[in-house]
Design a protein around this nucleic acid. Sequence first.
RNA 1: GUAGGUAUAGCUCAGUUGGUUAGAGCACCAGAUUGUGGUUCUGGGGGUCGCCGGUUCGAACCCGGUUACUUACCCCA
Length: 477
Amino acid sequence: MKPSIPRGTRDFGPAEMQKRQYIFDTVKRNFQLFGYAPIETPTMENLEVLTGKYGDEGDKLIFKILNSGDYLKDFVFSGKEVEAFDKLERSNSNAFLPSNGILESDKHIRQISEKALRYDLTVPFARYVVMNQNALTFPFKRYQVQPVWRADRPQKGRYREFYQCDADVIGSDSLVNELELLSLMDKAFRELNIPVLIKFNNRKILSGIAEILNASEQIIDITVAIDKLDKIGKEGVVKELRDKGISDAAIELLEPLIDLSGSNEDKVNTLKTFLDTSEVGKKGIEEIEFLLNHLSTINIGHVSVELDITLARGLNYYTGTIFEAKANAGTFTPSILGGGRYDDLTGIFGLKNMSGVGISFGIDRIYDVMEELKLFPESVNKVTTTKVLFTNFGEAEQLHCLGLAARLRAAGINTEVYPDAGKKIAKQFEYADKKQIPFVAVVGTNEMAKNTVMLKNMQSGTQMEIGLDDLKTVLAS
RNA sequence: GUAGGUAUAGCUCAGUUGGUUAGAGCACCAGAUUGUGGUUCUGGGGGUCGCCGGUUCGAACCCGGUUACUUACCCCA
């Protein structure tokens, strides 16, 4: 059998892991710097915890887990299915024909599957908060770095298994949380050296717009359509709005907003006029202004921050501020971070008045962007962290080297001893070369007798015979 | 779910209007060099040309089907 892995999943080798760890470490360090504490939740959730939280499209992308046991035993198949099955297993097809009901995937899904792989980290977090509400201290700040799964068609920058790095604070409706998250993003992206444009918006603005257009129940259609502005252009957006049944009068009203441009302040001023009669819209503007007014207070300096009222974000649960970050250089500029405020995500699980806000770093896409822009520092661009390899000339020499290795490791120096006996010395050097180990320590009978090693610098090709103390000094530098 | 592209050695790919024994680079193994890698030279192993069927004297090549991968749409990190 030819080995393979499921579409949209990947293996990560040592070289890739060095770089992935670098991103994880940077992001985690910054989470902790802002007071977030780590949690983890199970890979699988009960299906009903996840369904209905991500919109119709999102729900379709949830990976469901088959129940254990013979969950089909109570079902009758239709004549067509029996016929197809009969062709395959003519001999004992009757075994599958008891009498209870016809199998229909939408009706009987629960009897086939009652668990699913997590689709994001936010909903499991909300579930966790509700289940542990009495043990938690609010406002509760948590971070979580785990893979999520989506049954998408994979393409460039889109995987079926990928990691999210989430930081959320729940139990506080202060906009200071949004401000601090902006500060966190700025700091993390600065350390990763990625040029980033952070777009933000507010769901209340979008609600206000829908209200003014007298199309509140079509808010999703409207936001999804204008979200595509930079992709399909103004004509495309107008066409999509028409297709969704938005009236021409409403589309006409909307036009100045589709054309909205200029500085953040200009946009806010236009919005103020437009949303003058909408209470929720005015609240949204107030929130946006607070954030804009304090960007300098928190010293945002690396990322650009731009108000973009076409930013919608598909997830159903957002109610206030929404964030999205994109790489601001190169040709490959996918969304590498998303987030926002959700006022009532825990409500579905029975806990009211628990507003939260959070962001999610898309680490796999960050990796892809950094790879394209060649942003990884030299220190992580290697396949191993081993500093020195001891050669193996034979049993006595190897045992001697094991002792030396133990002393180097005690000094914090990453050390390997070539394990297999009887390998040519050239082979052992080749091993060091391929792993990019910078030093090889050759220890034969001569060196043993003098209690020295012949240390070769693999990059320069030079070598010198030195004692243990000098060895430590050279390798520690 | 919709539309396109691709499938030949472990990897990346050539392969002429259909014609003998299907090639290259990289990788791998051995030797030149029995205490020295990365460079060089010499030799070697490695193929169900995705799969099934059709056309033909003859198919990697043409035709039909099928599967996998991939790009885009939808949606999203």
